[in-house]
């Protein structure tokens, strides 16, 4: 299936999502990525990535309860699915395999 491919940013988002158990949503994910990678993130890119992941069924979302913050607006929380975890593993395996095939370089 064409859709199962993971983009670089998507992979990052999916990873972060898996790390942040029960509190993964765009803001926390974005902040975590910023922290981990030092990149500046636009929220909408995170969102876009999340929606794509959801479409690919790597994550599933549910609406959190409304709190006093954000003007009472609810959050859409994400959690990784089994398929998502498989995809991450796969990506990691592919990389691991390829790393193992890597000749020695001296720069």
């Amino acid at each position: 299936m064409k859709g199962t491919h993971l983009g670089e940013f998507e992979e990052l988002v999916l990873l972060t999502c898996a790390l942040l158990v029960n509190s993964a949503y765009s803001v926390t994910i974005g902040a975590e990525i910023e922290e981990q990678t030092g990149r500046t993130i636009t929220l909408s890119t995170v969102h876009t990535a999340l929606y794509r992941l959801e479409k690919k069924e790597f994550v599933e979302s549910y609406m959190g309860g409304s709190t006093g913050e954000r003007g009472g607006r609810r959050k859409r929380l994400y959690r990784i699915t089994a398929a998502g975890f498989d995809a991450l593993n796969q990506a990691k395996d592919i990389r691991g395999r390829m790393w193992n095939m890597m000749p020695n370089y001296k720069f």
Binding site: R70, R73, K75
Partner: peptide, 10 residues
């Protein structure tokens, strides 16, 4: 709702 909330927090 979601987007606005996230943006505000951000």
């Amino acid at each position: 709702e979601e987007v606005q909330g996230d943006l505000h927090e951000w």
